[in-house]
Design a protein around this nucleic acid. Structure first.
Lengths: 252, 252
DNA sequence: TCGTATTTGTACGTATGTATT
DNA sequence: AAATACATACGTACAAATACG
């Protein structure tokens, strides 16, 4: 039997993830407050009945989330971000929805199929005979269109996942499921552009009006392309959050 | 004695970083090419005379850089990114320079000082009596202004670093040094805005013209604010690259 | 199809180094 | 100067996913 969905999930949760969730919970509950120092790693690992190495793996996750900062000799300090740090544009998600200033309350999805163009063959690493699914999504806040997405996906991927292609609702859910599923990474470009006829019509804005365009390819492990998409953001509707970092002390 | 610069550097390089650099070098030299499988971790660690744990720490760094992908049971595979993966907007840098479509060949820097306004006090966690350095930077490609930065920094930080405040060139270098120094993280917002009089003049564009605005605060470890800045991008001059990810398999 | 070998993932324990208090 | 606490490094063992005969 093959994988049913894309991986029927492992159910098996590593110990260090459990530890991470436990400590996360402590912080949410206020057991340790911003500015507090966590107990030493030796003490904590003993309390939780895990080795110090396992505890440190959990600490790494907490750090990535911005929950704690640590410094050699001092300790692990709880940061002020007691609120769950919103994930920004550096994480894969649905930017049109995530960063819209108004609530997105309706989407219109359309799906079609076409042979892979040369560009698709390059970008999605497909053979000429391959079929590409084209998904157009329009996002509305009330009656106002706030964004539009053109998604290109190898037909294979949808085929493996038993999506009901007649039901545009499940198609959209499949798409958002892919995005939130994890294990993906992107090569993304963001720029300003001017609305031509078609998009001006869709977004109900004057022709020539500038707006934001996000163009990206998503890959899974091994560099396997999963989809390529172009997102168009109606003007004045979005503000993007990004959590930038610069961890590596590389270079001199 | 206190830290002289911001940390006179450790000189001491961890073993796993050395291993990371060794393998990076191998990949650059083409010892292993995209698509190749690296030797098993046991073999590699034996070859390099390190424990498997240490090797795996190096592998983590290689993964973060996008040089290799790994999968349980299969191995560590070299990815196609043999070219050094450019760091995108998710890393701290100087976006006006990094993502400008034309080369930035000149900057004009001005510096001034003022008492901390209420907003500065909040954002930079300063007392009312504190002094804030205001650095204005205009970026040019030839004679064309491509961007403008307004940087606010607690005077303390500059004071500790023996910057020659008379020499705007060293001030600019201090600023870029801070950005590339590492150990920082940001809370960044990106949006479109319309040029009002002052900025329209600086960027030499018509009033009301839309452009991109990036507003952010930079923090070091412990949530200590380092600077707050507003960047303005002249229209049609920039394209941002972002490497988005979604590693964590969290949430169901 | 099934078992076996290979390879990475997780977990533990121990020891020592280094920064901070 | 000493104690504390995190960082690095080694070794071992077993689990889980994959590849292969």
């Amino acid at each position: 039997m093959k994988d049913t969905v894309i991986k029927e999930k492992n159910v098996k949760i590593p110990l260090y993830v459990t530890v991470y969730e436990t400590i996360s919970q402590w912080l949410k509950e206020g057991k340790y407050k911003p500015g507090d120092k966590l107990p030493g790693e030796n003490i904590l690992s003993e309390q939780l009945n895990v080795s110090r190495g396992t505890l440190r793996q959990a600490m790494l996750l907490l750090q990535e989330d911005g929950f704690i900062a640590n410094q050699q000799g001092r300790g692990n300090i709880v940061l002020s971000n007691q609120n769950i740090s919103k994930s920004g544009l550096e994480k894969i998600g649905n930017p049109i929805v995530d960063f819209c200033l108004q609530p997105v309350d309706r989407v219109e999805t359309a799906i079609g199929f076409q042979p892979a163009t040369q560009k698709h063959q390059e970008v999605l690493k497909l053979r000429p005979s391959s079929i590409v699914a084209v998904i157009d999504i329009t996002y509305y806040s009330g009656e106002i269109p706030v964004g539009f997405a053109m998604v290109y996906m190898p037909y294979e991927i949808m085929d493996n996942s038993s999506v009901d292609l007649e039901n545009t609702d499940t198609v959209y859910r499949f798409y958002t499921g892919l995005l939130s599923g994890g294990g993906l990474y992107s090569d993304t470009k963001l720029r300003m552009g001017n609305a031509r006829e078609r998009l001006a019509n869709i977004l109900k804005i004057p022709e020539g009006e500038p707006f934001l365009i996000l163009e990206e390819e998503l890959y899974s492990e091994y560099d396997t392309p999963v989809l390529s998409q172009k997102l168009f953001f109606a003007p004045e509707c979005h503000e993007f959050c990004i959590n930038r970092k610069n961890d590596r002390n590389m270079g001199i």
